[in-house]
Simulated assay, not measured.
Amino acid sequence: MILLRQLLDELSTKQPLFFELKIKMLLSEWDKIVGPVIARHTKVEKVENGTVYIVCDDSLWMTELTMQKDRLLKILNERSGKELFRDIKFRRGKVDGKVLR
């Protein structure tokens, strides 16, 4: 029996729509990927051309995560099973309605 993930992997190599769905499913688990503390201070804004755009609620988190970028890319690519992600860009902004100072 083919697992849903295997089917999605196969379809994602043939159809862009399924490729986008695979990325969205992976990044919907952002809190599991980075842990609850980091997830409270960040959110995935978008993915374009292999670059993940992350919003951070504080410049300290931006600095810390910039230093962890290689580790985060490795985790994302391991979870995806392929080298889907090449870069991560961070910016300061609103995260889950939290207003910045």
Rank of each mutant, 00 (worst) to 15 (best):
K69D: 04
V44C: 11
R40G: 04
E64L: 10
H41S: 09
S28R: 12
K69A: 05
V55H: 05
N49A: 15
F90K: 07
L27N: 06
L76K: 10
D58A: 11
V37P: 01
T66R: 08
V55W: 07
K89T: 07
I75E: 12
F90D: 02
L84K: 08
C56H: 10
R40S: 11
T66V: 03
L76A: 04
V34C: 03
D70K: 15
I88F: 06
D31F: 05
I88D: 02
V37E: 07
V44H: 09
K24R: 15
T51I: 14
E29R: 15
K74L: 11
C56P: 00
K24C: 04
E78K: 12
T63P: 00
E83H: 14
I88H: 04
L76Y: 10
H41M: 11
K24G: 02
D87F: 06
L60I: 12
E78C: 03
R79Y: 13
I54M: 03
K89E: 14
R40Y: 09
D31G: 01
R71S: 12
T42I: 10
R86L: 07
K46F: 11
L76D: 05
E64I: 09
R40Q: 15
T42W: 05
K82T: 13
D31S: 14
K43V: 03
F85E: 01
L27K: 10
H41I: 01
T51E: 12
C56L: 08
L84V: 04
D31I: 01
N49G: 07
L65C: 00
L65A: 03
D31K: 13
Q68R: 12
I38W: 11
Q68C: 02
L76F: 15
M67P: 00
K32A: 09
I38F: 12
W30M: 01
D87R: 04
T66Q: 11
R40E: 03
N77S: 08
G50P: 06
E64G: 00
E48L: 13
T63W: 06
A39Q: 03
I75N: 01
L72C: 03
E45G: 00
K69Q: 13
L65F: 05
R79S: 05
K82R: 15
N77D: 08
L65I: 04
S59W: 14
V47D: 08
V34L: 10
K32Q: 11
L26W: 12
Q68T: 00
D58T: 09
D57W: 02
E48G: 00
I75M: 07
W61R: 08
L84M: 14
R79H: 13
D57Y: 08
N77L: 08
K46W: 07
L60P: 00
I75H: 01
M62Q: 13
P36I: 10
V34S: 05
K43Y: 07
E48A: 10
D57R: 12
I54S: 00
L27S: 06
T63C: 02
L60N: 11
V47Q: 12
T66N: 12
L65E: 05
R71H: 10
T42E: 06
F85W: 08
S28Q: 09
L76R: 07
F85A: 06
N49Y: 13
K74I: 03
D87L: 07
A39H: 06
I75T: 13
V55E: 09
E45H: 13
S80W: 07
W30E: 03
R40L: 11
S28A: 14
R71M: 13
R79I: 01
R71W: 10
